[in-house]
C-alpha cells in the first residue's frame, strides 16, 4: 500500500473522529434550543404561541430577575418548593394538579400559573372561593411579581428567583 494512502487513512480517521464529535455537539445544541422552544409553545395558552419564538430572547436577557421557584409559604404544604420550568403549574385539589393542595377552601381545579414571555401569570380557573394576589382578587390573567403572595384558601404561594 502506498505511503500516501496510509497517511490519508491516518489523518482522515482523526479528522472524521473530530467531525463526529462536532456533529454530536451540533445535535445537542439544536436539541437544547428546539426542546426549549417546543415545550414553551405547548405550555403557553392559545395566542401566545405565535409570539413565543420571538419573545424568548428578551426573556432570556432578564433571566437574573426571572422567577425560578414557586414556594409555599403558608398552609399545610408550607416549605414545598417547585422548580419552575417552561410548563404551566396547575393548583388545586385534583390529583392531576402540579401542586395538589389539601385546603378545605380550595377547589378541585383552583388556579394555574402560566409563563408568558418570561413573566408568570396567575389565572383563576373558576374557583368557588377565589384566588387572591396579595389582597386583590384575581379575575383575569394577572402578572405575578416576585415575592408577592398568592393566596388560595389558607395556602399562600410566592414566586422566588
Amino acid at each position: 500500500m502506498p505511503a500516501f494512502v496510509v497517511a490519508v487513512a491516518r489523518l482522515g480517521f482523526l479528522v472524521l473522529l473530530w467531525i463526529f464529535v462536532f456533529t454530536v455537539v451540533g445535535v445537542i445544541r439544536r436539541d437544547l434550543f428546539a426542546g426549549a422552544r417546543s415545550s414553551r409553545l405547548v405550555a403557553a395558552p392559545r395566542g401566545v404561541g405565535a409570539s413565543g419564538g420571538a419573545a424568548s430572547r428578551p426573556a432570556k436577557v432578564k433571566r437574573g430577575k426571572a422567577a425560578h421557584q414557586l414556594v409555599v409559604t403558608a398552609g399545610q404544604l408550607a416549605g414545598t418548593r417547585i422548580t419552575l420550568g417552561e410548563n404551566q403549574i396547575t393548583i388545586g385539589r385534583a390529583e392531576d394538579s402540579t401542586l395538589v393542595i389539601t385546603d378545605d377552601y380550595a377547589s378541585a381545579r383552583h388556579a394555574r400559573l402560566v409563563p408568558r414571555n418570561g413573566q408568570w401569570m396567575i389565572e383563576d380557573l373558576g374557583s368557588t372561593n377565589g384566588t387572591y394576589l396579595d389582597r386583590a382578587k384575581v379575575t383575569g390573567p394577572t402578572p405575578v411579581p416576585l415575592g408577592v403572595p398568592i393566596r388560595i384558601g389558607r395556602t399562600a404561594l410566592e414566586l422566588r428567583p
Binding site: 428546539a34 426542546g35 417546543s38 415545550s39 409553545l41 405547548v42 395558552p45 392559545r46 395566542g47 404561541g49 389565572e123 383563576d124 380557573l125 373558576g126 379575575t139 383575569g140 390573567p141
Partner: peptide, 24 residues
C-alpha cells in the same frame, strides 16, 4: 375567570399532541 382563558385548554390540546411527538 375570563372567556379566553376558559377556552384556552381545548384548542391547545390538538396542537399540543403532535408537536412533542414530532420533537421525539
Amino acid at each position: 375567570m375570563t372567556a379566553p382563558a376558559a377556552s384556552a385548554p381545548p384548542p391547545a390540546q390538538p396542537g399540543a399532541a403532535p408537536r412533542p411527538r414530532r420533537g421525539g
